[in-house]
Simulated scan of single mutants.
Amino acid sequence: MTSSEPDLDALMRAGQAGDAEAHRALLQHVSTRLRSYFRNKLRRSGAGLDEVEDLVQDTLLVLHTKRHTYDGSAPVLAWTYGIARYKFIDHLRLNARSLRNVHIDDVDDLADEDRYAAVDTSRELHRALAKLPRHFRLPIEYVKIEGLSIAEAAARIGMTDAAVKIGIHRGMKKLAAALSETRP
C-alpha cells in the first residue's frame, strides 16, 4: 500500500460503524480497482468492454448491501475481488458467446465454478438442505444464506466458531454431492 492509498480495512470498519463518508470513500476507491479488473477480464475473454460499468455497479451493490457480513478475516480487497470474480462468472454464464473466447488462465476459475453450478430452483436447494444434519444445515443457512457472521451463527446455534466453519465446509461438500446426484 502506498502512502496515497487509504487503509481500506479501516474505511470498511468505519463504514460498518455508520460513517457514511468512510463508506463512500471505500466504494469510490474500490470502484477504480474494479474497473481495471473487469476491463482486463472482459478483454481476455474476448468480450466487449461495454459491460465494465454494469459489472462494477453490480459488485459495488453487493459490497454495499452485504457490508454487514464482512468480518475482517480477510483484507477488504480480497473480499471485494472474490465478489467481483463471482459477478464476472455470472456475466459469462449469461453471455455464453463469451465462453468460446475465454482466456486459458480463466478456464480453471470457470471449471471450479461448474462443479458448484447454480441450482435450477430454490425448491431443489431447500430440499437438499433439509436432508443435511442440523450441524451442517444451520451453519450454511445462517452464514451463507442469511449472511450472519461466523460468531453470530455460532452463538445462535450453540456451537463454537470452529465447529461452524467445519460445518459449513463439510456441509457444502455434502450439499454439492447431493445436488449433483439430482442433476442429469
Rank of each mutant, 00 (worst) to 15 (best):
A128W: 00
R13S: 12
V102T: 13
V119W: 04
A17Y: 07
S73E: 11
T65E: 11
A25H: 08
D108Y: 08
D54L: 06
L132F: 00
D58W: 04
W79A: 09
Y116V: 08
L60K: 02
G72L: 02
L61V: 02
V164G: 02
R39K: 01
I89H: 12
S3P: 08
R156N: 04
G46N: 05
R43T: 13
F38C: 03
D114L: 14
D9L: 02
S180Q: 07
I83H: 07
F136D: 10
Y142S: 04
Y70V: 12
M159L: 15
L49M: 10
Y81R: 13
S98R: 11
R24Q: 10
A163V: 09
L94Y: 10
R44D: 12
S45A: 15
T160S: 15
H68P: 09
M159Y: 15
D109N: 14
T182N: 06
D114G: 10
T59H: 05
D105C: 02
H64M: 02
L94I: 04
S36T: 15
Y81Q: 11
R13I: 05
A176R: 00
M12Q: 06
M1P: 10
S180H: 00
M1H: 11
N95A: 04
M159P: 12
E53M: 09
E5N: 13
A130G: 14
D9N: 15
A130K: 07
R100H: 11
D7W: 08
N95R: 06
H68G: 13
R44A: 12
D50C: 06
Q57L: 09
L55R: 12
R35D: 09
A10P: 08
E51V: 07
S122N: 07
F88W: 14
A47R: 14
A96K: 13
A178C: 00
R100Y: 07
M172Q: 12
T2H: 11
R170D: 11
K173V: 10
T69P: 04
D161F: 08
I89P: 10
Y86R: 13
A117G: 05
L34D: 01
T121Q: 03
D105S: 14
V30S: 00
I145K: 00
V52T: 14
D120N: 11
R43C: 07
A178P: 00
A162P: 01
E141D: 06
S180F: 01
R39D: 02
V143M: 01
R100F: 12
A74R: 07
H135K: 04
L42S: 06
S4R: 09
D58Y: 03
L94A: 14
L49T: 13
L63H: 01
T182S: 12
S98D: 13
L125T: 10
T160C: 08
L11Q: 02
L42P: 08
